[in-house]
Design a binder for these strands. Sequence first.
DNA 1: CCGTATCCGCTCAGATACTG
DNA 2: CAGTATCTGAGCGGATACGG
Lengths: 213, 213
Amino acid sequence: MAARDYGEYGGVTRALELIGERWALLIVRDLLVGPRRYGELAAGLPRIPSNVLAARLKELQAAGVLRRAPRSRVIVYELTPYGHELEPVVLALGAWGFKALDDPRDEQVITPDSMTMDLRSAFRAGIAAELPATAYAARVGEAELLIRVDGRTLDVSRGDGPADLAFAAGPGIRRVISGELAADRAIATGVVEVLHGRGALLDRFATTFHLAA
Amino acid sequence: MAARDYGEYGGVTRALELIGERWALLIVRDLLVGPRRYGELAAGLPRIPSNVLAARLKELQAAGVLRRAPRSRVIVYELTPYGHELEPVVLALGAWGFKALDDPRDEQVITPDSMTMDLRSAFRAGIAAELPATAYAARVGEAELLIRVDGRTLDVSRGDGPADLAFAAGPGIRRVISGELAADRAIATGVVEVLHGRGALLDRFATTFHLAA
DNA sequence: CCGTATCCGCTCAGATACTG
DNA sequence: CAGTATCTGAGCGGATACGG
């Protein structure tokens, strides 16, 4: 049942034995956004073979990282408290990997859950606390998110809703977050399209969410 | 050259493409302690096949995580600045995995580098700042470390040296760090053997390095 | 539809031997 | 010492099929 081990006794080694297998940490990432059904997980990990997903769910359950939500009519997977403690790991990893992103290839997909976690990685609570509460509606690829920033708290949820600024963007939004592309130039060049609201708020967005390369 | 990808565009995904392969993050962990030769890395990862180590070193080099140290007579591997930015990831992962450690199996090894990183994970700078500067000489398994704490800074180096407290322990030292076993009881039961210095300092050690389960 | 199991082809990991 | 070469088998990816 225990994953193939490394023959070493230590914290990192143990962690990798529990969540180091291929796909495992991506499942954790999506569950950090919220409980998910089997099919939702499969949809959020487009290339995962169904047998691998089933195997990982079992292993992660045995490892105490996730569980099937009790007293729920349908089967729903959720993180255990211990699994939830992986949040700092996933955020740090996401921040690190974000800096290595180049422009996306055509076959690459952006899912709502992955984008949610990227936004959490890039969120600067200290900066946001100085700014007025703001709601953004963002459409990037297939992901449609409502992003609410209020003081030091960030809430990202799927779907649409009332927002101070609604915008659509290609994945070039990355360059806005990395600071390579100024907000006003992103709008001017069409990388970001303002759907409604004051376009000037995109600059606030870029200030709130920032990961320098 | 690029590792097998996940077909998704996002920070965590990209990170796992770069350092998600088996053994990769353990190599990074050891290099976070300092530059290492090929043979030193092999010794610190007892079960890694030599071809896999060679392959990982190439991939991590291509990923910009590490490089061969320039103008060095022998071949030495060291992290790039970008690779060094993985430190928070490794520390967080180590802290998480440490909590899932149970007692070690016989074939499991403790290496100096893995123990050094575990100590860094468990180090509580805020607590240490309130305590007097202290040097510990610890022998755990094959690892012999000199641990110097001064204010908020921690320095761990291999080998022996002048210390306020020198002790030898089996891996049961984990229970001291987790708080399951009080320092005085660890000494009384022989889990930790005081070689010289005041045994009472082990309590300070347990306060300085702590990861609750 | 949701969750699993089972097939197969293939890549990668593991073990060992060998070379500059 | 610092890798490369080769072989074998485990695990992944992909497809398909089956029970609730």
